[in-house]
């Protein structure tokens, strides 16, 4: 019995030893990365390509400080909305032409989809409105989207959701929520892939 115990201990000792030796020789890049804490000056990298799309300074910060987001208003065809949404009555003919009949609203859960004024400001049509009644600029829609999609927003601020524009270096400019997602039906549509692959040799 004691003999068995001893041999067990012996075995354990060896297993432990070989394990620690193995670990010592296998220093992973992951450790090196974790220890890299010095600030890297992103702006020291000379860039050849500049962001040409209009971008605005974000109203929030990410881990590296301030950053920019692609502007939205310039992409909305008939902005400002208030140029149509006035107190004046609209004729039926104008209405047919100008209503947002082309919008397919598929946002929210199936049985309880969102309606226009869940996001749009009911009075001031040039703005959005969040659940707390704050006016939100179209260029900063992340402030609105983030109230439900808070996980995505956290990842977007950090850099795990969405993407940077053009450069990995230089001042951080990222895509806005609405650059990629159609706010009225945010899910990507199914489609054929851009290409196909052949067998590997």
């Amino acid at each position: 019995m004691t003999k068995l115990n001893y041999s067990c201990l012996f075995l354990l000792f060896f297993v432990g030893l070989s394990h620690s030796l193995g670990a010592a020789s296998e220093k992973s890049i992951v450790d090196e990365i974790k220890n890299a804490e010095d600030r890297f000056d992103n702006r020291s990298v000379p860039l050849v390509e500049q962001v040409v799309d209009e971008a605005v300074l974000a109203k929030e910060e990410y881990q590296g400080g301030s950053f920019r987001v692609l502007a939205r208003k310039a992409k909305i065809e008939r902005y400002k909305c208030s140029s149509c949404h006035t107190d004046k009555p609209v004729t039926a003919q104008q209405g047919a032409l100008l209503t947002h009949g082309d919008i397919i609203l598929e946002h929210g859960s199936e049985d309880q989809g969102l309606s226009c004024i869940d996001c749009h400001h009911p009075q001031d049509r040039d703005y959005l409105e969040d659940k707390k009644g704050r006016k939100i600029d179209f260029d900063h829609s992340y402030q609105l989207c983030g109230q439900c999609h808070f996980r995505q927003k956290r990842d977007w601020l950090g850099g795990a959701h969405g993407k940077r524009v053009v450069n990995w270096a230089g001042e951080r400019t990222v895509y806005n929520c609405t650059t990629c997602h159609n706010p009225h039906s945010p899910r990507f549509e199914k489609r054929f892939p851009a290409t196909y692959s052949v067998e590997l040799d």
């Binding site: 890049i29 990365i33 890299a36 804490e37 010095d38 600030r39 890297f40 992103n42 990298v45 000379p46 860039l47 050849v48 390509e49 990410y62 881990q63 590296g64 950090g158 850099g159 795990a160 959701h161 969405g162 993407k163 940077r164 053009v166 450069n167 990995w168 270096a169 230089g170 895509y175 990629c180 990507f188």
Partner: peptide, 30 residues
């Protein structure tokens, strides 16, 4: 030259993250 790889730039879903592993403030480190 500071630019993103072509695949990252083209990805329509933002599934691809690229950056400097030695920069504690980079997206990839996040």
């Amino acid at each position: 030259k500071g630019r993103l790889p072509a695949c990252v730039e083209a990805c329509p879903t933002g599934a691809r993250v690229f950056g400097n592993l030695l920069d504690p403030e980079s997206e990839i480190r996040y």
